[in-house]
């Protein structure tokens, strides 16, 4: 097969000055087998249409800023090669379920507001007796203990999983895959003592219980985080606590 000269890229565009009229715009972009989709977008911006707006930074799938819907699936545009999309056309839309600021740029504020609620930081054992006996002792961890949360700790906050989650789209208050995976990541860390503080968020409807295990979050995650597992294991934990609290009154709340 000979390589095509160009590849057709269609972008769903929106500009705040014409809020009623999102429009599809097509670009014939020079094709290179080793070019990424992000490079094609940069070519459009540099050579064809300077008004096209999109986010990017690292170009190597680690900053998490270049996410968009590619043929209906959330992807990092820097993580896709044109040769895997040929012969096209390639349909690009802003990440689903988020408010659009302009073209492919979405507003991540909702996620940033939810992050603090899940306690996504290690809580040291300040109050425990062991810590009092040996103040400022280093928190040691074996590789086996690290393996329990390592996968969850790979999140780059790219929000692809939120765009893959219909429950987030239907119920915007849902804390969502990445935030709940970070909750599980810190719960599973042997150095952490903050589980109790994360429970209220976990046990709420907007915590793990808005999830129906669609599972697409895990399929689209570029980092192999597996938010579906993080959330649904916490459903079991939340249900266990619910039953114990019901049977042993005074245990909690």
């Amino acid at each position: 097969m000979t390589d095509p000269e160009t590849i057709l890229i269609e972008v769903l565009r929106w500009h705040p000055d014409t809020p009623e009229a999102p429009w599809w715009q097509s670009y014939e972009v020079p094709y290179r087998a080793d070019a990424t989709l992000l490079e094609a977008l940069q070519t459009i911006k540099d050579d064809l249409d300077g008004t096209l707006t999109f986010r990017w930074s690292c170009r190597m799938a680690i900053c998490g800023s270049c996410g968009c819907m590619v043929n209906g699936r959330p992807e990092l545009s820097c993580h896709l090669l044109l040769r895997d999309l040929a012969p096209g056309p390639v349909r690009l839309e802003p990440l689903a379920h988020f408010p659009v600021i302009r073209d492919l740029v979405i507003d991540q504020q909702d996620f940033l507001d939810k992050l603090p609620a899940v306690g996504a930081y290690l809580v040291p054992a300040e109050e425990t007796e062991a810590a009092a006996a040996a103040p400022a002792a280093p928190s040691r961890q074996t590789p086996a203990q690290m393996a329990d949360y390592y996968q969850y700790a790979q999140c780059i906050n790219c929000l692809l999983c939120y765009s893959a989650c219909p429950q987030y789209g239907l119920k915007p208050d849902f804390l969502g895959p990445a935030a709940l995976a970070l909750m599980a990541r810190h719960d599973a860390d042997s150095r952490d003592h903050g589980q109790a503080g994360r429970r209220a968020a976990r046990d709420a409807d907007t915590g793990v219980w808005d999830c129906t295990l669609v599972g697409h979050c895990t399929e689209v995650c570029p980092q192999g985080v597996d938010p579906a597992r993080a959330i649904n294991r916490n459903k079991t934990a939340s249900a266990r606590d619910y039953v114990f609290d019901l049977l042993l009154p005074g245990r909690r709340r």
């Binding site: 929106w14 209906g72 699936r73 689903a96 408010p99 659009v100 600021i101 893959a164 239907l170 697409h216």
Partner: peptide, 22 residues
């Protein structure tokens, strides 16, 4: 707040075969 455009959820299962399997 910035003016934004919010897309709806009508027919969301059409977006991906994974949703129809679900």
């Amino acid at each position: 707040p910035l003016p934004t455009w919010q897309r709806g959820m009508r027919g969301w299962w059409r977006r991906d075969p994974a949703f129809r399997r679900y």
